[in-house]
Design a protein around this nucleic acid. Structure first.
Length: 589
RNA sequence: CGGGGCGUGGCGCAGUCUGGCUAGCGCGUCUGACUGGGGGUCAGAAGGUCGGAGGUUCAAGUCCUCUCGCCCCGACCA
């Protein structure tokens, strides 16, 4: 492709509103253009990168035995009512009605396709002989994100590969799941992405039933906990905490004392007023667990983990109690609850770390007052001790004796053993060996194609621009003739351009009549992995200049045989990104 | 949904607090000349409903009211 024939509107300055590197660089490199909050046009360069990612995903899905199909973005709202997800999704589900002669048809834009595909299988699968099967599509999804942000990372319309497995038995589901898991590893590797599969909340099947494929990145929206020694990795919602030292420090207990704290209710306010650390407080949260109030006690600097609380209390539904309920239970407004005197009124669930606290500060269960010198065991007794909080950096690993490291990450993919949730709701059953009706056991597997690009740029760029690996780069080679007016230069450039194309290399030639600085700066910005400069200077000696985007200095190559040599490099780099990986790992040190 | 910020030629910004003449600057664009290996120089030119509506005033980019959009933080996220 010739630069002057395509459309690459690069930007010299950072557009207002773009903050993180991937967003800034995709805009500046002329890959995307914003249409509205959460919706972007993919310009030619961006589309090419997107297609490359899509191609890798498709190849690996096919290789793993998944079968491609394509479902519509629109579907009848009735399907979503049957699965109960109209309520579950709420405003995130984009719903609308269209007028047909004499009636209105209600529909939704698919945020995912469990309902559509399960309905399909309900009609077309009837026997165990038709199972297992895994189907996938690469399709645009719609979610009315409450807060779209970070460029293409969180948008209301995005490209997703979603796959669904259908099995007759749990063992078979596990096999389908393993195949997808392995395919995901290959996909992220081929995209040259650093990735971390982490355990995620597993829903109805429990156990090892859900993994997220995380791309560690400073600007990631998710938090993961990772043990570098044993490899344990989980998202923050899921991460367990190893055995903690809960012994009480050998300090004298203070007497219980009530202090006036008018209008001071948050952890920050109380610790500032009393000149103590947040960790010296006991945070008392009142939840409604299946409709009954319970109290959850945490150290002041810790965060509640509702999944853990739900498990510890063995309940299904868990929500923070409404202010009226809190007042009725504790006798004080929100922000002044405390465990002292609460025992017997409702169950007290305490996090393990509370056990080690001496002379803590808590709410006094009366307006505008807190208690100091509160000692667990002496002043109140918890009914249960459990792991109830989010894991944090430095917490003990649950699998070995090491410590967990906290990292931010972008969720690039998710694999999930669904079980029979949708097949039961939508009547997708089959007849087994024993002529018994069974619900099909399902799994679902998603990859955000746009996030592959955002994740790559987020983790591979420098002050000048993007650094693409060959496998995803919009073009593999950028050919830069230094002087478009010089006949010898253009002859050599055109010939190399044709030879590279003939050798199957994706080549872009910057044939603009522009100054060297302009071309070089744009080259760095759009990040094509290999830059080839042809100019009168090198041509005198029959040589041209080659430079990988991640290298500082160029090297010279004879014009004779250059096309073949470059094609060979590309062939290797496409497959394994060996040069890219090596350069990036050196840069990381 | 709560908190904060921003809307001024294609892009990035100044001007708004303290109302006042033809609304500036940089980049980009166009024409011509010189130039030609990291955003070059000179000469000339085009291009703006100051997000929108209403109001105050002799006078509004600037003050008031409403409204639309965008960004960030938080809450939320099958």
């Amino acid at each position: 492709m010739l630069w002057t024939h395509t459309f690459i509107p690069t930007l010299k300055e950072t557009p207002e509103g773009a903050e993180i590197p991937s967003h800034v660089l995709m805009l500046r490199a002329g890959m995307i253009s914003q249409v509205m909050a959460g919706a972007y046009t993919y310009l030619p360069l961006g589309l090419r990168a997107l297609r490359k990612a899509e191609h890798i995903v498709r190849q690996e899905m096919d290789a793993a035995g998944a079968i491609e199909l394509l479902m519509p973005a629109i579907s009848p709202i009735s399907l979503w009512e049957r699965s109960g997800r109209v309520e579950a999704f709420g405003e995130v589900l984009i719903k609308f009605a269209v007028q047909r002669p004499g009636r209105k048809v209600h529909m939704a834009l698919g945020p995912t396709h469990e309902e559509v595909i399960t309905d399909l299988m309900a009609h077309r699968i009837s026997s165990y002989r038709q199972l297992p099967v895994t189907l996938y599509q690469i399709q645009t999804k719609f979610r009315n994100e409450e807060r779209p942000r970070f460029g293409v990372m969180r948008t209301s319309e995005f490209l997703m590969k979603d796959a669904y497995s259908f099995d007759a038995t749990l063992e078979s589901l596990n096999e389908s799941y393993e195949k997808m898991y392995a395919a995901y590893c290959r996909i992220f590797e081929r995209c040259a992405l650093e990735y971390l599969p982490v355990e995620a909340e597993s829903g109805p099947i429990g156990g090892d039933a859900s993994h997220e494929f995380m791309i560690p990145a400073e600007n990631g929206e998710d938090t993961v906990l990772h043990c570098r020694d044993c490899g344990y990795a989980a998202n923050q919602e899921r991460a367990e905490i190893g055995t903690r030292d809960c012994s009480r420090p050998d300090v004298p207990e203070q007497p219980l004392h009530k202090v006036a704290t008018p209008g001071v209710s948050t952890i920050e306010q109380v610790s500032a007023l009393l000149n103590i650390r947040p960790r010296d407080l006991i945070k008392t949260l009142i939840y409604e667990a299946d409709g009954r109030p319970i109290a959850v006690l945490l150290r002041g600097d810790h965060e509640a983990n509702e999944a853990k609380i739900r498990r510890a209390a063995a309940v299904g539904e868990l929500t923070l109690a409404a202010p009226e309920v809190i007042e009725a239970v504790t006798g004080a407004a929100v922000g002044f609850a405390g465990p002292v005197g609460l025992a017997g009124k409702l169950p007290l669930y305490a996090d393990h770390d509370v056990r080690a606290m001496v002379s803590a500060v808590t709410g006094a269960n009366e307006a505008d007052a807190h208690l100091t010198g509160v000692c667990p065991g002496r002043d109140f007794t918890a009914d249960h001790f459990a792991d109830l909080r989010n894991a944090e950096d430095g917490d003990p690993c649950p699998r070995c004796s090491s410590k967990l490291t906290q990292r931010y990450a972008i969720e690039g993919g998710h694999v999930f053993k669904l079980g029979t949730k949708y097949s039961e709701a939508l009547g997708a059953r089959f007849l087994d060996h024993a002529e018994q009706q069974q619900s099909i056991i399902m799994g679902c597997y998603g990859i955000g194609i746009n996030r592959i690009l955002a994740g790559l740029i987020e983790t591979n760029h420098d002050a000048h621009g993007i650094i693409w690996p060959v496998s995803i780069a919009p073009y593999e080679v950028l050919l830069v003739p230094m002087k478009t007016g010089d006949e010898a230069t253009m002859q050599a450039a055109n010939r190399l351009y044709a030879d590279l194309q003939a050798a199957g290399v994706d080549v872009l030639m910057d044939d603009r009549d522009a100054r060297a600085g302009v071309k070089f700066n744009d080259a760095d910005l759009i990040g094509i992995p290999l830059r080839i400069v042809i100019g009168p200077r090198g041509l005198k000696d029959g040589r041209l200049e080659v430079k990988w985007r991640w290298e500082r200095e160029p090297s010279m190559l004879p014009v004779e045989g250059a096309a073949a040599a470059i094609a060979e490099w590309m062939h290797h780099e496409r497959a394994g990104s060996a040069r890219f990986r090596k350069a990036r790992s050196i840069a990381a040190d």
